[in-house]
Design a protein around this nucleic acid. Structure first.
Length: 874
RNA sequence: GGGUUUGUGGUCUAGUUGGUUAUGACACCUCCUUGACAUGGAGGAGGUCGGCAGUUCAAAUCUGCCCAAACCCA
């Protein structure tokens, strides 16, 4: 084989194979798949970042590995299209407000925009060599997908279980996005606020002071509260006070949840400042005085302040309190405020009529426990989040670009009937279509008003495993794997568990593999302002996709955060070069018949490398099956570099160049087996490189990704031991030559090797490797033997002597070495006096370290390895 | 404030049920063009395994406390 290029050029090779794969069907499963990935449908931001690259690499490693095992793998790719950020971008780009154009037109603009974004991300995915089945691509904005979302809604609304309901209830509200949002979409941000000490004049009693960071909520004040244990207010429970500036009268109540140490120990209760207010309001049956509008202004209940923005009102009201002499003091305070995770605007809590999905914690957790979480502590996160859920999931959004809620309201103002569509009517947009039923079953009215609210996008993505499994046409069976970042456990994983449990009473996936975050080279979160952000494209261009993938695999074990390091990418690229050179050298000795070499006369070195290969393949397979990609790749690299290249290749060079046909064939066959197996094991990590090598390898047909996992059952323990001896001696002599300043191929007069294998081993390859005649010898070399120390076996001496073990070791160390040696050799045990007592130690438990010393003046060098004593005659 | 996770040579990282000399990579120093590879080879220096206490004959590993960081939650 001489047509193998001298060097490996990923810039040319990678695009070539990507093109090849695109035109083939190797990533499309045939028939019923065995291994199904519920790929996270990313939000089409247009940019695939390294965090995505990590998650997708994990999935691709798993997909390719399972294909090599002969499984039919379904690795689809979806896109979670709907959502606010796109609406905002489109508004910016078109310079319009979404209400400026008809809903349908605005939706079309969003679709068009999303398509462009998807294309960009797809390109990066392909340049990273991911092996999705693009025939199974889906987009949640397509009608055939959101038909499923609507169907799932209808089933959950109509089913006996009745998960979906409509109600007025306080919800998180983003005043900028002007929509309700779910708990999962609220993020807490820490900031410094101002604590206002405000006097509430007493009605027929003394004044009281409260502390609040939100004076703009005075208009919404419906009560005051103190801790029941607070002695300062012991006699004042039930007293009435007047709300400053606004005049409504409120009562002081006692509640355990008041923190008496904060501010003055008295707080005002408003509708609503936070969730705590909601609790108090519900528990003490207080009035509802909502003062905020949906777009973040004050309404008529705020009197003169009507129309002001919330932030403006805060300042003005504080000023006016000051003017009235009711603002006692202000001080800075650290506060944590809920904010919209999409735009960081502080959220408000408004009481609104919305659609909800009931959260049934127990049944979600029951299913979550049946999922295998990798790493398993990720289950705890889900459990914590689930148990901490206080409110049901609000699924309606006051937006446009999302799945329409298939429901209508009776057009008769006096009738409150709400009609949910039948499954047969779907997909539909209720703002454009009337229901199939004619008359309202309650009032007989025939006019219908379509629901303009749309669904939370998590309603789309939380049925992804069902979509992937062909629901509703096919009966649902759990997918095999869900891979995702730990940041979306509380959202996507949670909602998916909720939905699949509700709809199918099944787990969505058997295994949930969680990836960590990817940090920059400096160990910090990647950010543009920090200047440590790296995109996949940049890294590919610098070193190759195959190297980036290896660097991601080796960054740490799945689940832990990893640091993106250029040096790892670089060392991966060096490994590929090394592997290429090994292959190139090997290929020189291969021909078309090499794979067919039958009954080769393997020598010890061959049996040794095959045994090592077999062990490596087993270990790597085990790691891959457990998603320990880091360990798998590390073991593979060590085998290829240390065992195959450094040791085996050096040993068999002589045989390959000058051996007799039979001897040569054995080496060629063993080498072929090792290279062929290694390249297949590398295929999940570096698929382009692997295909390139595989394609040049004789006896192969088609892609390495359609090949099978190496099945090298070779176990010759004795040959493995002898091979270790050979490799060890070769390496020791190489090191010695290096130390002596000799050329590594310098010839030697002869080498004698004394080992437990005596004369019963194969010296041919070693002799070639060290360039000297090699004489295996039994017995002891004829040189002076000097004991230099002891090597106690703590695992024997420890348990035997317990608390005396330290003294025993001490006695051994100070004993006369020659005497110890004699005792051990003659009696098989060692007797010592320890602390005035006679103790006896098994001979096995004490190793005697000895060194051979050449007689002075003799032309011989004595080298010691673990398994042998080597006499080198230069 | 609560929870989860992490802390190993300059940097990143491995270490399965406690057991001799703690893994590898990168960087660093010295030497070497030998018939795959100088993107290579051989050798070397560099660690109180975050700290303190405890359990044990024996702790990177188990327990407790403390410190630091990341994430999640309040």
């Amino acid at each position: 084989m001489t047509d193998v290029p001298d060097s490996y050029d990923p810039e040319q090779v990678e695009p070539k194979w990507q093109e090849e794969w695109r035109g083939s069907e190797i990533y499309n499963p045939e028939g019923e798949p065995d291994y199904v990935i519920d790929t996270p449908p990313p939000y089409p931001t247009g940019q695939l970042h390294l965090g995505h690259a990590l998650g997708w690499s994990y999935m691709d490693f798993a997909a390719r590995f399972h294909r090599l095992l002969g499984e039919e793998v379904l690795f689809p790719q979806g896109w979670d299209c709907h959502g606010l950020p796109t609406e905002v971008k489109v508004e910016e780009e078109e310079n319009i407000h979404r209400t400026d154009v008809p809903r349908e037109e605005f939706r079309d603009l969003c679709v068009e925009y999303t398509e462009r974004r998807i294309d960009g991300m797809k390109e990066t995915m392909q340049s990273l060599g991911f092996s999705q089945d693009w025939e199974a691509e889906y987009r949640t904005m397509d009608a055939d997908y959101w038909e499923k979302t609507q169907r799932s809604f209808v089933e959950m609304a109509d089913g006996e279980d009745d998960y979906v309901y409509r109600d007025e209830h306080p919800v998180n509200w983003c005043p900028r996005c002007e929509t309700a949002i779910a708990d999962a979409e609220v993020e807490n941000i820490d900031r410094e606020g101002t604590l206002h000490y405000i006097t509430f004049p007493g009605v027929d009693n003394d004044d009281i002071q409260i502390a609040t960071t939100r004076p703009e909520l005075l208009a919404a004040c419906v009560g005051m509260a103190v801790s029941p244990d607070d002695e300062r207010y012991e006699d004042r429970i039930g007293d009435t006070f007047e709300v400053p500036l606004f005049g409504q009268e409120v009562e002081l109540i006692a509640d355990d949840d008041v923190d008496g140490d904060f501010g003055t120990g008295a707080v005002m209760i408003c509708t609503f400042g936070d969730k705590q207010d909601v609790d108090w309001w519900a528990e003490h049956d207080l009035d509802l005085r909502p003062v905020f509008t949906e777009d973040g202004h004050l309404n008529h209940l705020a009197g003169d302040y009507e129309g002001l923005k919330i932030e403006e009102a805060k300042g003005l009201i504080a000023d006016d309190l000051e003017a009235e002499g009711l603002l006692e003091d202000t001080e800075p305070t650290d506060q944590s405020v809920g904010a919209c995770w999409r735009c960081d605007t502080p959220i408000e809590i408004l009481s609104k009529e919305q659609w909800f999905v009931e959260v049934r914690q127990d049944e979600i957790l029951e299913k979550a426990e049946q999922v295998e979480w990798i790493p398993d502590h990720m289950y705890d996160r889900l459990e914590d989040w689930t148990e901490g859920m206080e409110w049901d999931w609000v699924i309606s959004r006051q937006r446009v670009f999302a799945t329409p809620i298939p429901a209508w309201f009776c057009g008769n103002d006096d009738c409150e009937y709400v009609h949910v569509a039948e499954i047969g009517e779907l997909p539909l947009d209720p703002t454009e279509t009337d229901p199939e039923i004619d008359a309202c079953p309650e009032c007989g009215g025939e006019d219908w008003e379509g629901e303009t609210d749309v669904m939370d996008t998590w309603m789309d993505s939380s049925i992804s495993p069902m979509h992937v499994q062909g629901w509703p046409d096919e009966e649902f069976t759990p997918t095999t794997l869900r891979e995702q970042g730990h940041d979306i456990i509380r959202t996507w994983a949670f909602y998916t568990l909720l939905r699949v449990t509700a709809l199918e009473d099944e787990i969505p996936w058997e295994e949930s593999l969680v990836n960590g975050m990817v940090f920059g080279d400096d160990g910090h979160k990647m950010s543009k302002s920090r200047g440590n952000a790296v995109g996949p494209e940049e890294a590919i261009e610098e070193y190759s996709a195959d190297s980036v993938r290896q660097a991601l695999a080796l960054g740490g074990q799945p689940g832990s955060d990893i640091q993106f390091q250029w040096k790892e990418v670089k060392s991966a690229s060096r490994f590929l070069t090394k592997f290429w050179n090994i292959f190139q050298f090997s290929a020189d000795h291969f021909d078309e018949d090499t794979p067919e070499i039958d009954a080769p006369a393997y020598r010890d070195a061959d049996k040794w490398i095959l045994t090592k290969l077999s062990r490596t393949a087993d270990a790597v397979e085990e790691d891959m099956a457990e998603y320990r990609f880091d360990a798998a790749l590390r073991k593979l690299r060590e085998f290829v570099w240390n065992d195959l290249a450094d040791d085996y290749l050096e040993l068999v060079k002589g045989r390959l160049y000058e051996g007799r046909p039979g001897e040569r064939d054995a080496a060629r066959k063993a080498l072929y087996t090792a290279v062929s197996a290694s390249v297949r094991m590398l295929a999940p990590f570096s698929p382009h490189f692997a295909d390139e090598v595989y394609h040049y390898l004789p006896g192969t047909e088609g892609s390495v990704h359609a090949a099978s996992w190496p099945d090298v059952e070779f176990a010759d323990e004795e040959a493995a031991e002898k091979g270790d001896l050979i490799a060890e001696v070769a390496s020791e002599i190489r090191a010695w030559k290096s130390d002596e300043g000799m050329a590594l191929n310098a010839d030697l007069d002869r080498v004698e090797i004394y080992s437990e294998y005596g004369r019963e081993w194969d010296t041919y390859d070693l002799s070639e490797a060290v360039n000297a005649p090699v004489y295996p010898e039994a017995g002891e070399p004829n040189v002076e033997l000097v004991p230099v120390g002891i090597d106690p076996d703590h695992s024997q001496i420890g348990p035997q002597f317990r608390d005396k073990a330290g003294q025993v070791i001490g006695a051994l160390e100070s004993a006369d070495l020659t005497q110890l040696k004699n005792q051990k050799e003659i009696e098989g045990e060692i007797s010592l006096t320890v602390d005035g007592e006679e103790v006896t130690i098994e001979g096995d438990a004490v190793g005697i370290e000895e060194e051979y010393r050449a007689e002075s003046g003799e032309e011989v060098e004595v080298l010691e390895t673990d398994r042998a004593t080597v006499l080198v005659f230069p």
